[in-house]
Amino acid sequence: MDAFLVSTGIVALAEIGDKTQLLAFLLAARFRRPLPIVCGILVATLFNHAFAAAVGALVSHLLGPEVMRWVLGLSFIAMAAWIMVPDEIDEEETKMARFGVFLTTVIAFFLAEMGDKTQVATVALAARYSSVVAVVAGTTFGMLLANVPAVYFGGRIANKVPIKLVHGLAALIFAVLGIATLLGVGAGLGF
């Protein structure tokens, strides 16, 4: 349950102001059909985060627990710094409208997530926790928590969310996870 809750919280916070959330705003404004956009986000995120979690689990399996502790601890601290860097959306990611709303969303979101903060976080979380399914479910749910309101209420909420505060909270969580991992907190709990 910890893997699901931590994954949900981290990705939901990390996604606020992220380029994929900006993409959700753009798709919602362009197509004005929220349901196929949300379904596209779900499908793209499931595929992307399942791949990322598989990579994280593989890396965790290949490296010993002591090396993994250092890699994960430093990765979480690096994520804390990276999350404070604002994202921008690439206009090329929204020029695929000929595929229809759903498929355009799937393709654009999948590509936008490649190497993105939340994908890297999913790799690290899957390496940290033993349950890949809980991590993928949590990161996907976190992605939807951040993006569904963006799709449905985009313009009305975009200026009301204090992005720097949200990014600061996410960075703090990553930093705490990183330091706790480096100190070996939770080592006796099997993760």
Rank of each mutant, 00 (worst) to 15 (best):
M1D: 14
M1A: 13
A3H: 04
F4R: 00
L5M: 13
S7T: 01
S7K: 07
G9E: 01
V11I: 15
V11D: 06
L13I: 05
A14L: 08
I16H: 07
D18Q: 12
D18N: 14
T20W: 05
L22A: 00
L23C: 10
A24Q: 00
F25V: 04
F25G: 01
L26T: 14
L26C: 07
L27P: 05
L27R: 10
R30I: 13
R33I: 00
P36A: 04
C39V: 12
G40Y: 00
I41L: 10
L42W: 07
L42T: 09
L46I: 15
N48A: 15
N48D: 15
H49G: 07
H49F: 13
H49D: 14
A50M: 09
A52T: 02
A53C: 03
V55P: 01
A57N: 10
L58P: 02
V59H: 05
S60G: 12
L62R: 06
L62W: 12
G64F: 10
E66P: 02
V67P: 03
G73I: 07
G73Q: 10
L74Q: 01
S75K: 01
S75Y: 04
A80G: 15
A81R: 12
I83M: 08
I83V: 11
V85D: 10
P86E: 09
I89A: 08
D90F: 07
D90N: 13
E91Q: 09
M96L: 13
R98F: 15
G100W: 03
V101T: 15
F102I: 01
T104V: 05
T105P: 00
A108W: 02
F110I: 03
A112V: 14
E113S: 12
E113A: 11
E113Q: 13
M114G: 00
K117Q: 14
Q119E: 15
Q119F: 09
V120L: 14
A121K: 06
A121N: 06
V123D: 09
R128G: 05
R128S: 11
S130I: 06
V132E: 11
V136E: 06
A137Y: 07
G138C: 04
T139C: 04
T140C: 06
M143W: 01
L144N: 08
L145F: 02
A150E: 00
F153H: 05
G154S: 08
G155T: 08
A158P: 01
P162N: 04
L165M: 07
V166C: 02
A170C: 13
I173F: 13
I173W: 12
F174C: 03
L177Q: 12
G178M: 11
I179H: 03
I179Y: 10
T181W: 06
T181P: 11
L182W: 00
L182S: 03
L183Q: 06
V185Q: 07
A187D: 15
L189V: 07
G190P: 10
F191W: 14
